[in-house]
Amino acid sequence: MPLLDLATRLARSAAYAIEAIRAAGCAVDEKRDGSPVTEADRVAEALIVEGLRAATPDIPVVAEEEVAAGRLTECGALAWLVDPLDGTREFAAGRLEFTVNVGLIRNGRPWLGAVAIPAKGEMFRGIIGVGAWKQDATGDRAIAARRPPPAGLTVLASRHYQGDPKLAPFLEGRHVAEIIYIGSAEKFCRIAEGVADLYPRFGPTMEWDTAAPEAVLVAAGGRVLGFDGMPLAYGRAGYKNPPFVASGA
């Protein structure tokens, strides 16, 4: 699994760099679209992108901050999609819910991915058709998405869309035990490891937000579908995702 090992190694190195910057403190700037960006975003992306291009020069790399700066890369049959710091708002607010996402798509679909949660010392990784794993202070182990428990669904929702009027109608008629609001791709990881069940996303996301965590979740037995019931497509012009639902087994 050399490509997964590469993604994992670079995601981990970026996580260490982000934690060092978080400890020292950094300013929050604003991109042209009004979204926040920090030194941690830039440093982590440079580390990951340089590592990917050095190790796999024939595979295109699409990275969030490069795209924001106007560097557009055509995806081929294989392409890396990189979000160096998913959940910059959480990072800037001093919360722990931010991730590093390094995903590889193949023929327009996620194939493998590594997702680090730097502040919690967790690493999730997976290859679709092979398996998914979580590494933390207790060791490295296989993970699997669960079937909904009798107590009801644990639903994860975006912290920044708590007032979304679409959520209640979507959940109507479902047996829901609790709704937890958190940020970043961590939501995919919690479903992948079998501690949550459903994540509906009504607001905008980009392909680099979801490629790596979708690979982990699908490798763990879950799925991600648009509201039309179709899998998300990757490598499209503009890199924007439609609304979707991530779920367990």
Results as ranks from 00 to 15, higher is better:
R32N: 13
L167G: 01
P204N: 12
A211G: 06
P242R: 06
P243W: 04
A137D: 14
A40N: 05
L10D: 07
D83Q: 08
E90F: 08
A168T: 04
F124Q: 04
P243G: 06
C75W: 09
P231Y: 00
L104Y: 03
M230V: 15
A157Q: 02
D197T: 03
T99D: 00
M230E: 15
R147V: 01
G229A: 03
F202N: 02
I48A: 07
A157S: 10
I128Q: 08
P150W: 13
W80Q: 05
F244D: 08
D41H: 09
F170A: 07
C75A: 14
C26S: 14
T99A: 06
L6G: 12
P213H: 01
I180P: 05
T138H: 15
V224Y: 09
K166G: 10
G108R: 11
G248C: 13
D58W: 14
P243R: 03
L171N: 03
R22P: 12
Y16Q: 14
A119S: 04
E193A: 02
L96N: 11
A177V: 11
R42H: 06
P204S: 13
V100C: 00
P110G: 02
T138S: 15
L198F: 01
L85G: 00
P2I: 14
A7F: 04
F98G: 04
V49G: 05
D5S: 15
P165N: 00
V43G: 07
L72Y: 08
S158N: 11
A249W: 03
R109Q: 12
L225N: 12
A93Q: 08
L52A: 01
A144K: 02
T138G: 14
E30H: 12
P2K: 15
L156W: 07
A177L: 14
M123E: 08
L3R: 15
D33L: 08
M1Y: 14
V61S: 01
A7Y: 04
A116G: 03
P200D: 00
I191R: 06
L217G: 10
S158F: 09
G129K: 05
R223F: 02
G163P: 06
D33F: 08
G113P: 05
G238W: 04
A185Q: 09
P2V: 15
K187M: 14
H160F: 12
Q162N: 09
R201D: 14
E90G: 09
A116V: 01
E39P: 11
L198Y: 04
M123A: 06
F170Y: 12
T99H: 09
L225T: 02
V115Q: 12
A11S: 04
E97M: 11
T205E: 15
R159K: 13
V28P: 03
A246F: 03
V100P: 00
P213L: 02
E214Q: 11
N241T: 09
G194D: 13
K187P: 09
R106E: 03
L198E: 03
Y181S: 10
I191E: 13
P243I: 00
K187C: 10
K166W: 03
N107M: 10
V62P: 02
V176P: 05
L225M: 10
T138Y: 14
N101V: 00
R236V: 06
D164A: 01
G121R: 11
C189A: 12
A46R: 15
E207Y: 00
